[in-house]
């Protein structure tokens, strides 16, 4: 008989005991060790992953900060450049304005100086011209000129307008005194002629005083009660001079206005 049933039972029991012992001494410890190692490796990997993630996060953060810093720097730089350019422009503008003002002022000063100079020259020339004219006329004044002056003076008296004549006649009737000023000495005939014409014109017997005044430049003047009737070359010259002065002043004003 190949099968011994006692041996079969014994071997079955032996095998089951062996299963238990192997489980106790081999499989469980080995599997536990493997599990423990796997758990450790998994933990290490997870740790490495988390560190990696952390590092990536930190790197991202650093990169972001770097970019922000760069952007801020370039912005500041651009702003500073812009401000500098604006400041430069402003300074140039101010300098240009100042230079223009200075030039304008200088120009105005020059013009004013030129105007003053020209005005002075004009006045001086005018004064000279009239002085020369006065001189010449004074030098030329002779008997014939004086006669002629007396004639003109007498005609002036005769042709005096009515209100003036009436007013003056009334005044002379109340107080018949007057004065005749001439640049030259009158002859007796001329004095008598003047006395006659005055008496006739104002219908009064006027007490005349005669005096010589060389500044009248070949002229004759009658003054009584604040009224003056005169014909002198000096008067002409004065009138001319006033006209010339007015003209010069007007031109100076027009130049200042432009």
């Amino acid at each position: 008989m190949l099968i011994d049933w006692f041996t079969v039972v014994a071997q079955a029991i032996n095998f089951l005991i062996l299963v238990w012992l192997m489980k106790r001494f081999l499989y469980r410890p080995i599997l536990n060790a493997i599990d423990e190692r796997e758990a450790r490796i998994a933990a290490e990997l997870a740790d490495a992953d988390s560190r990696k993630a952390e590092a990536a996060k930190e790197r991202d953060e650093f990169q972001r900060k770097n970019e922000a810093f760069d952007a801020d720097r370039s912005e500041r730089l651009a702003k500073a450049t812009e401000e500098a350019a604006a400041e430069r422009q402003r300074l140039i503008e101010a300098a240009r304005k100042a230079a223009a003002e200075l030039a304008t002022r200088r120009q105005a000063g020059l013009e004013a100086e030129a105007a003053t100079l020209s005005h002075g020259l004009s006045r001086r020339a005018q004064r000279e011209v009239f002085a020369i004219a006065r001189q010449v006329l004074g030098d030329l004044a002779g008997a014939s000129l004086e006669e002629r002056a007396v004639e003109v003076f007498l005609r002036l008296i005769r042709d005096i307008d009515e209100p003036t004549r009436t007013g003056l006649a009334d005044a002379l009737r109340a107080s018949p005194s007057g004065r005749i000023r001439t640049a030259f000495d009158l002859t007796e005939a001329q004095r008598a002629s003047i006395q006659h014409v005055l008496n006739e014109t104002f219908s009064a017997d006027i007490q005349l005083g005669f005096e010589t005044a060389p500044e009248l430049v070949s002229g004759i003047e009658f003054a009584a009660h604040g009224t003056k009737v005169a014909w002198t070359v000096a008067d002409y010259l004065l009138t001319l001079e006033e006209g010339a002065t007015k003209l010069l002043d007007r031109r100076a004003k027009a130049e200042a206005g432009t």
Binding site: L18, L21, F25, L26, A33, R40
Partner: peptide, 19 residues
């Protein structure tokens, strides 16, 4: 059985979980 169990016990007595 003795060989297998004793062998296993000896080997697994000092198991290492490290590398």
């Amino acid at each position: 059985m003795i060989v297998m169990v004793v062998g296993s016990a000896v080997i697994t007595r000092r198991l290492s979980a490290s590398d």
